[in-house]
Design a protein around this nucleic acid. Sequence first.
DNA 1: CGTACCATTGACGACGGTCAAAAAACGTGG
DNA 2: CCACGTTTTTTGACCGTCGTCAATGGTACG
Lengths: 229, 229
Amino acid sequence: MLTQNAIRTGFTWRATNNLHASPQLSTSLLRDSINVMGATVPYSRNTEIFGENESADYVYKVLAGAVRTYKVFADGRRQIGGFYLPGDVFGLETDDCHTFSAEAINDAKILVVKRTALMALAIRDNEVARELWSMMGQEMRRVQDHILLLIKSAKERVVGFLLEMAERVPSGNNIELPMTRQDIADYLGLTMETVSRTLTDLQTGASIKLASARRIVLQDRGALRRICG
Amino acid sequence: MLTQNAIRTGFTWRATNNLHASPQLSTSLLRDSINVMGATVPYSRNTEIFGENESADYVYKVLAGAVRTYKVFADGRRQIGGFYLPGDVFGLETDDCHTFSAEAINDAKILVVKRTALMALAIRDNEVARELWSMMGQEMRRVQDHILLLIKSAKERVVGFLLEMAERVPSGNNIELPMTRQDIADYLGLTMETVSRTLTDLQTGASIKLASARRIVLQDRGALRRICG
DNA sequence: CGTACCATTGACGACGGTCAAAAAACGTGG
DNA sequence: CCACGTTTTTTGACCGTCGTCAATGGTACG
């Protein structure tokens, strides 16, 4: 784990000194703490960030690039647990071990923070604890929404995925997907081929436009939302 | 919400006075707190405990009976988020609103605790906070395992469900299911018919025995685990 | 004993998986 | 800038699993 060992072992409490002064800026407090306590580590495309069942000593935040968490079964099937984009936090576990593995989808910059440091901070500061709690809840909602996707038809799943990505990358109707069709398929519980076919179907129906394989334009969000259910 | 309003609005801190004396009994501390702070409410079969989007003012613990959380879509499809058996805690949200609805599957006794009371306790007592955190993590793992089920074949899903239930009700190989086939189907993203057919298939293969519709005997766990993957 | 509700079984069709091949995109080095 | 090999994506043909519709059988409870 952490093959690119540029982790700064020491960290400073500096940033937390005057945090109690502005408790109303709730989301920026934890964020600031993480930013100061952590070290930036570059990961190149397709390299492992941590493995399933490794001890969860660090918490991670995407600064640039994209990350996938996943699990591989004995028969080779892979399930992707989630995609993490700039600003997203991942690897936040309550247990001692990671339940999924994590890989960089493309060249990425990741902020790495010692878990014990975060937890120590949370014990001292209720505001930080509250924010960690709400972060956990956000992740929970993400996973529950994922479940709701997985019971739907192929078309609904793909559309749901597109709308989710469009929400998370607020770049209008132009989505730049960092992941392959196989990644999307493994996230949605479908095959690569079905994802591809469904996308061309959607393009034929004029709901989207495939500018290139990875660049998708949402042309009719109303239609997409109607499909999603 | 809480139509059967037997909630005791006041609660006592009595139980928390000497909690710091035994920090090593980690799981019993929060449990004790909940037990003392809460009120027992009976819910009859198929009655709503809370609805989706209602404010999450209470946290619940099953004392007897069983509970399902669920979501109903516009087109009538229903997804069951989870089943909760005696000892299980549900309705633990980080947000202000419940994301799922909850119903009693059969006549049940539920311990109901004010959320603010729990949170206040957690702020005063790091041990309680830690336990709430780990409870949240347990729920997270449950939901993630649910995702892993949903990408598999019908047979694998049903077997996965049976093994999960067998683990949670440590009654040997004899499982007494409180829920209907439709409930199981809506949990696994299948139809009632497929669940039924799969169960009879498993019986034909001598992996299980359907003593009655709701009583299932696991005859060959090895075979079941092999199927599950 | 009768009446809902629940579970099982059957016939059939559609959706999505599998296998295979072609086409497009990408990166690398000349 | 182009030629080349590799990876990714698309498309096609076929088949199996599971959903749909419908009827029958079973169980619990008044």
